[in-house]
Simulated scan of single mutants.
Amino acid sequence: RWGRRATLLAAHLAAAGLMAALAFTTHLALIAVLATLVGVAHSMPSPAFVAAIVDVVPEARRSRAFNLQFWAFNLGMAVASLLAGILAEASFTALFLVDAGATLAAAVVIALKVPETLTRRPALTPRAVAGRRPGLHTALTDRTFLVFVGLTFLLAVLTMQTSTIMPLAMREDGLRPSAYGLVVALGGALIVVGQLFVPRLIEPYRKSSVLAVSTGLMALGFGALTVADGLPLYLGAAVVWTVGQMLAAPPNAQINADLAPPELRARYQSVFYLTFPAASFVAPALGGLSLEHLGERHWLVVGALGLVAAAGHLLAGPRRERRVAALRAEAQRAGTVGSTR
């Protein structure tokens, strides 16, 4: 309803103000309120960014665009982690103020350089919703899309293992925190160095096949932690699952974009992005119990989830492709009708 540009501006300005307020807040209840509002503000840009990318990038180049976005995000995370560690040792107030300043700078760039990309037009929906205007209900009742969201949720649960359960397992194996940092840094370095080469590598293959292979690699990497008891094995496993993450990022984003009717891109994106915060809740909540009761066999369960997701992509792929082809044909017909008026 607001458009991409207005949503991005509102989110960045709100986040900058809230982070600045957190810098000088010491009351616990107020910190909790501000942190909650920061979470809301931080959840707004992602659907708007992706919807804007789909708006302006031709379909043939979207995989490369999403790949570049994933690369930039991970590069920013690596730089932010380094700066945050340095600033936190000096002053937490400075940490929050620098964060607020950087967010405000992003808002200024958006205000000066980012135009509105949303074109208002009749929605092209996969099926008519009797008595309803197409909207969030359409996304929440789109079975083909929801199957894809469910498979992405499983992928997100695997990804969250690195920041939730893996450090606990490494501690049980007698490894120091610096070893965990090295494993995480290796993954980040692989993405920064190699991610830009992924689109050319996967371009000849069907997206469902790429996702099945990538999720299978993640299952293999995390499953290997069943026998990991030293840093070399953890590093080797990290290479395997990181390659899986790198392969999964472009087709995962593009399929999500392809399944969304043009007028409903942002709403579909908002449902899709729920998978990651949901996984960040489920992974530590259930993963902690699993590690406590199953020990190293927890990683067999994680690996099995990855294999289920891989099989799901192979089974669901043909139906997704038919849906995407139908939406494209409908968009072409609508464009042809519009051009003759």
Rank of each mutant, 00 (worst) to 15 (best):
G3M: 09
A6G: 03
T7K: 02
A10R: 01
A16I: 00
A16Q: 00
A16C: 00
L18C: 07
A20Q: 03
A23D: 12
T25N: 07
A29Q: 12
L37V: 07
L37S: 05
V38Q: 10
V40F: 13
V54K: 12
V54T: 15
D55F: 08
E59G: 08
A60E: 14
R61K: 12
R64K: 09
A65V: 05
F66S: 07
L68E: 03
L68T: 12
W71D: 08
G76A: 07
G76K: 02
G76W: 10
A84M: 04
A84H: 05
G85I: 06
I86G: 01
A90C: 01
V98F: 06
G101M: 02
A102V: 13
V108R: 04
L112G: 03
T117L: 04
T119V: 15
T119L: 14
R120Q: 13
P122S: 11
T125N: 11
P126G: 12
P126H: 11
L136D: 04
T144G: 15
V147R: 05
L154C: 11
L154V: 15
Q161W: 08
I165F: 00
M170I: 02
V183N: 03
A189C: 04
L190Q: 04
V193I: 15
G194Q: 09
F197E: 10
V198S: 10
V198A: 11
R200Y: 01
I202R: 02
Y205P: 00
K207W: 02
K207C: 00
L211C: 05
A212H: 09
F222V: 03
G223F: 03
D229G: 15
G236A: 12
A237L: 11
A237P: 11
V239W: 05
V243L: 15
A249M: 15
N252D: 08
N252F: 03
D258F: 04
D258Y: 02
Y268L: 02
S270N: 03
T275N: 14
A279V: 08
F281K: 00
F281I: 14
L286C: 06
G287I: 05
L291H: 04
E292H: 08
L294Y: 08
R297W: 13
H298M: 13
W299D: 07
W299G: 09
V302D: 06
V302S: 14
G303E: 03
L305F: 13
A310Y: 08
A311W: 09
A316R: 12
G317L: 07
P318Y: 10
R320M: 15
R322V: 06
R323T: 13
V324W: 05
L327I: 02
A331D: 06
R333S: 13
R333E: 15
T336V: 03
T336R: 14
T336E: 15
S339M: 12
